[in-house]
């Protein structure tokens, strides 16, 4: 079989087109910025020497250093992060601290939402934890709406969200959506019960938002735009009661704690 000039041209065109198809999406994926973080690339310079070592190597250091700044006053104090050079405060907001779940109707879930906002521009990273004082309960008689276990076929726990769509599965729980939320909240049907401070022994508060990333360029005196420093998520509270649930006004308190990373 002889390949004509036309055949060569065709082969070349198909080859170029296929290579383009393979590489075009890859080049698009190399975005310089995302909605959450500024992406920075290093300068690659030519002229460096090859490193002779290869594989994996570990080093250990044991020693002491004299604290040169330890003056006669007997103390040294350093405030803020050395690598951020920022005077931006650490800020935490809850859009609505009164979650009104209304008058409950058996087998009819009731929901309400609030928005958590963290601005960690001066800290670089943060975590927000949540814990309830106790399950939803009446003040006078002490009747309780138990924390949810989600749907019977998809049980959830304080550390693992799962599907809760059945109106025949009862309890109180929450869903998270937005930035820096735990990955097990796959979509709006995934719920967890709150960690319970009245349990015996008490549960530990559970992280509902966290980021360990630094959102400001090193040594840059100008802070990143507010949109890059602010992280936002929505908490959806859900309660569903059985027809056997005692009548009453059920209440609880959720404690949200925001701390910067150290």
């Amino acid at each position: 079989m002889k390949l004509s000039c036309f055949s060569f041209k065709l082969l070349f065109l198909i080859f170029t087109f296929t290579v383009f198809l393979f590489f075009a999406p890859l080049s698009l994926a190399l975005d310089m910025e995302s909605t959450d973080y500024k992406i920075q690339y290093g300068n690659v310079v030519i002229g460096g020497k090859d490193q002779s070592s290869s594989g994996y190597n570990l080093s250990t250091s044991i020693g002491q250093v004299a604290a040169n700044e330890f003056s006669s006053s007997g103390y040294i104090v350093k405030a803020g992060f050395q690598y951020l050079h920022s005077i931006i405060p650490f800020t935490f907001s809850i859009s609505d601290i009164n979650i009104d779940l209304g008058s409950l109707v058996p087998n009819t879930p009731s929901t309400d939402t609030t928005t958590l906002t963290v601005s960690a521009g001066g800290a670089g990273g943060y975590q927000v934890t949540a814990i309830e004082d106790n399950p939803l309960q009446t003040l006078a008689v002490g009747n309780t709406i138990p924390n949810t276990s989600c749907d019977s076929g998809t049980p959830c726990s304080i550390g693992t969200a799962d599907v809760w769509t059945s109106n025949d599965d009862y309890g109180f729980g929450y869903n998270m959506a937005g930035q820096d939320v735990p990955v097990d909240f796959t979509n709006s049907t995934y719920y967890r019960p709150f960690a319970d401070n009245s349990a015996s022994p008490p549960d530990s508060p559970v992280v509902v938002m966290s980021s360990s990333k630094v959102t400001m360029p090193t040594g840059t005196p100008t802070p990143a735009p507010a949109s890059e420093r602010t992280h936002e998520s929505t908490v959806t509270f859900k309660v569903n009661v059985s027809p056997l649930q005692d009548e009453g006004t059920y209440q609880t308190v959720i404690k949200f704690t925001a701390t910067p990373i150290y």
Binding site: F90, F92, I94, I99, D100, L104, V253, T257, P260
Partner: peptide, 14 residues
């Protein structure tokens, strides 16, 4: 008269 969840916020500095 309404079932509700109230929140309290804590902000910390290490």
């Amino acid at each position: 008269g309404k079932t509700s969840s109230r929140s309290k916020a804590r902000i910390g500095s290490h």
